[in-house]
């Protein structure tokens, strides 16, 4: 098998991520492929801590920390400046959590996407405000426990469909990616590098402390999310052309396999799980139809 992931490490060891952090691994893979000619923008998110306090930094590229709701537009500003006073080939990368993307950052994100600014936007989605201590976000799935959705009142509404929102912007490239499938992630990054315009990546990033899971299960969880069709790996080009990369088989593993490794779903009853399975199947079937009609 050919090794497709670049060997150069642009994340230093000794960063401050928790054990088994999906977000930390996602950064490692992303920077390997986008390389040194990259400027990062972080809003408030786990990575504002993971990178380390002044005077330390865990990344070997320039990094600008910004306010919670501004990741996309600061990266837009950086790109505009690179076009005038820098190297227009430098990648401008916004790197945000789900809170900074699905919630507080969605206005600026929509603005940058609508203008089709030539940049990358990555959301590493751990499905809640983990940095502040596990509060629900609009990326938290229905039924999940968080500190603001206690077990007697778990999250009552489904996770916001960020892909549909981004697809509606008709941006040239959208991809989902997983830390359990680094080759797939790398291939998509290589492809996106060649595309001018707004590139959006939705990365599934398990969070052992927030999901009440064992750090050793991070990769297993990320893999199960794909195998159960909860988080299919896919690409959307120009907001219209859907391609499902994984899972290969339409019949996925049962969602219980994924749920049982996490304390945040421990309170769910059989019926809740059944409902979740139906939701997943329906959503996946809809994706299959979108794929079929767009080919």
């Amino acid at each position: 098998m050919k090794y497709t992931i670049p060997k150069e490490e642009l994340v230093h060891p000794g960063h401050l991520a928790c054990q088994g952090c999906g977000g930390a691994l996602a950064m490692r893979i992303m920077l390997k492929t986008l390389g040194k000619n990259t400027i990062l923008t972080f809003p408030a998110c786990c990575w504002s801590v993971i990178d380390g306090p002044f005077p330390y930094s865990a990344v070997k590229v320039p990094l600008f920390h910004t306010a919670f709701e501004t990741a996309a537009v600061v990266a837009s500003g950086i790109k505009a400046a690179l076009n005038r006073v820098g190297d227009p080939k430098t990648n401008s990368v916004a790197w945000a959590g789900d809170g900074g993307t699905f919630d507080i950052g969605i206005q600026a994100l929509s603005g940058s996407a609508e203008r089709n600014d030539d940049m990358f936007y990555f959301v590493y989605d751990n499905e809640a405000y983990m940095n502040t201590g596990i509060q629900r976000s609009s990326a938290t799935p229905k039924g999940a426990w968080t500190t603001t959705t206690p077990v007697n009142h778990p999250k009552a509404t489904p996770k916001k469909d960020i892909l549909a929102i981004m697809a509606a912007h008709k941006i040239p490239y959208i991809a989902t990616a997983s830390i359990a499938y680094p080759e797939d992630f790398t291939r998509k990054l290589e492809k996106a590098k060649e595309i001018k315009g707004f590139k959006f990546f939705h990365i599934f990033a398990p969070c052992p402390p927030g999901w009440r899971a064992n750090p050793k299960d991070t990769i297993t969880l990320a893999k199960l999310a794909v195998e159960t069709k909860l988080f299919p790996l896919l690409e959307i080009e120009d907001g219209e052309k859907y391609t499902i990369n994984l899972p290969k088989k339409d019949k996925g593993k049962p969602i219980e396999d994924y749920l049982k490794l996490q304390g945040r779903f421990k309170h769910l009853k059989e019926n809740d799980i059944k409902e979740m399975q139906t939701f997943i199947d329906k959503k996946y079937n809809r994706l299959k139809i979108l794929e079929e009609i767009s080919q």
């Binding site: 990178d51 005077p55 990344v59 070997k60 920390h65």
Partner: peptide, 8 residues
């Protein structure tokens, strides 16, 4: 490469 605005 420098980092701007890290936790202080």
């Amino acid at each position: 490469p420098y980092t701007f605005g890290a936790l202080t």
